[in-house]
């Protein structure tokens, strides 16, 4: 179940829109934050607070790539491999994450520290290759730079 504050937050979001359904996307973000990932329980909670049928909520959530439907590591690395990043070495970086951190696309490190998600373009092509770690952009990546960045996360 969601805690009081989260329920309040959902109700607040709900009041911004002319229909409960419209609040689904932001509400699913909240549920993802609260539950860590979008379990059935998370969708049930959203459905309950917004009064939107639960299958609908899940069907909507399942459409979007940024909603996570599996438990995730503590930090999510979202590495872009689309063309601009690819031609500037994104694949090499993916290999590096695999060899040095044991991270495969869609996977999580054994210690639960990182999950790796391969992204389509994240709008950092001018500073490619690039990635997001949690909500932060990291650009002009190289192997050494990645190592430095990841060291900051526990």
């Amino acid at each position: 179940m969601l805690n009081e504050t989260a329920i309040k937050e959902l109700q607040e979001i709900r009041s911004k829109y002319p229909s409960a359904r419209s609040a689904l996307l932001p509400a699913i973000y909240v549920a993802q934050r609260e539950f860590g990932w979008l379990s059935e329980e998370a969708y049930e909670a959203v459905s309950e607070v917004l009064g939107v049928p639960k299958a609908i909520a899940r069907g909507v959530g399942a459409f979007y790539a940024m909603y996570k439907h599996r438990p995730m590591g503590r930090n999510i690395i979202q590495l872009c491999t689309n063309v601009s990043c690819m031609i500037l070495g994104a694949e090499r970086l993916a290999d590096y994450l695999k060899s040095h951190y044991g991270l495969v696309p869609g996977g999580t490190t054994e210690d639960g520290r990182f999950s790796l998600v391969i992204m389509e373009c994240i709008g950092a092509c001018g500073t490619a290759p690039a990635m997001l770690v949690n909500d932060e952009f990291y650009e002009n990546l190289s192997e050494q730079y990645i190592e430095e960045i990841l060291a900051k996360f526990t």
């Binding site: 373009c121 709008g123 092509c125």
Partner: peptide, 11 residues
């Protein structure tokens, strides 16, 4: 929504 790969002009 700026999603077209290669695009980062609105950012």
């Amino acid at each position: 929504d700026e999603g077209e790969p290669g695009t980062f002009k609105d950012r």
